[in-house]
Simulated scan of single mutants.
Amino acid sequence: MTKEGYKLGYEENEFENKTIEDIIKDYGKKQYEVRQSTQTPTINPIKDFNIENNEQLIVHFLASLFFRNGFHRLPAKVPESLLLDRDKYKNPKDQPTINIDDNLEFTEYLIRNLDAIFGLFPLEFNFTDEKGDKNKIKVPNISEALIEILGLLLGVQSNTDANIAIGMKTLVEAAKAGNASIIASDIARANAEYLGYKSKETQKEIPYSFTPNQTNLKDSLKDSKQKIVSFENVDKDNLTDDIKNILIAAQIIKAALVQPFNGADGFMTGDSIRDLKKDFQDKYNEEWESLLDYYANPNNANKPFKNAKIKDKSIPNNP
């Protein structure tokens, strides 16, 4: 047994093929009692040991650093990339693995995967606005990218709240406009039925302030002309011509049935004249009968001609 092996607590046959790393691992296992679990190796709290010499103190110190930094878990087998290609590998266990033998290799592996996850910075891209002008955008790091995104999201949230309020008011106004248009349409149809003019369906092109059936908002906001189904009057005459014909017929009827009455006093209809003539004839007949009775009645003591006989030869009036 060598002197060094004796100082470190090894038997001669145990110490011959030991490397420095093997010795550090052996001391570390005694200190921490590495416990293997189904997930990640864990360590118990450090135990108390009797240190007999400087060699053991140095090895215990190195073992603490070795285990506390996780070097005892090397070499380790890790996925080739932290970005799983799900189209290529349906099961994460099917992804290829690589071996990590030392801390520097692990640091390189970690930096390479972080670079793949975060992407290349600074980011540069061109943006074309609605006027067609091209602008170059540069994002130097993730922090500034997050600030820009957060600012845009806050603005979008504020605009979204305002748009929701505007949309609700627009729905109310649209409902009112729809009700008014239905009422106006019913009134127009009732007027058409009442007036009796003929109409037929026809296509009509009207201007719109938007373009339907577009795939993006920019094209949807363009002006367009669309065709709708409307109605047109197919009668040859119009209301003005019919009123003129009615007025002409009224003048003819007036000339035929209405006669002057006392000149400036106006006109009377034929029925009024007929009734007036009948009243006058009745009154005349009554006076005539009274006159005959006065002269021909033998019981009338006041008649001037007592022996006179009167015979009525007047023509009966039969209106």
Rank of each mutant, 00 (worst) to 15 (best):
A249I: 01
T42D: 10
R73I: 09
L120V: 08
K93V: 05
P316S: 13
K3M: 03
D115L: 06
A165Q: 15
K306P: 07
S143F: 14
G263L: 02
N13Q: 08
I315Q: 11
M168C: 07
F125I: 07
R73A: 14
T107F: 14
L146N: 13
K254E: 11
Q95M: 11
Q259H: 10
E105V: 07
L123S: 02
I206A: 02
K25C: 09
I166D: 12
L221F: 11
K200G: 04
E286Y: 05
T170Y: 15
I187F: 05
A256Y: 03
S37G: 14
S158R: 14
V139P: 03
L152Q: 15
V229P: 01
F67P: 04
I253R: 15
D87A: 06
S230W: 13
E33F: 03
P212N: 04
A308I: 07
K7P: 01
F66S: 02
R73K: 13
A116T: 13
E286A: 13
Y197L: 02
N297M: 03
L171C: 07
L120W: 06
G151W: 05
I51D: 02
K303H: 04
L247R: 10
P41Q: 03
Y89K: 02
A296P: 05
D237Q: 11
R112S: 09
S220I: 06
V156F: 14
K7W: 04
L8W: 04
E289V: 06
L84A: 04
N317M: 12
S272T: 07
V172D: 15
K311E: 13
I20C: 05
A308H: 04
A192D: 09
T38Q: 12
Y197Q: 00
E232Y: 08
A249G: 05
L110Q: 10
L291S: 08
A174H: 12
T40M: 10
F118R: 13
P41A: 06
G263R: 02
A308K: 05
F71N: 07
F305A: 09
I315T: 14
G178S: 09
K311R: 10
I51Y: 02
G167I: 03
P79S: 01
E52I: 00
N17S: 14
N245G: 12
P92F: 03
K136C: 07
T107V: 09
N91Q: 05
Q95F: 04
I273C: 01
N191E: 15
A255Y: 11
E11I: 03
G167N: 12
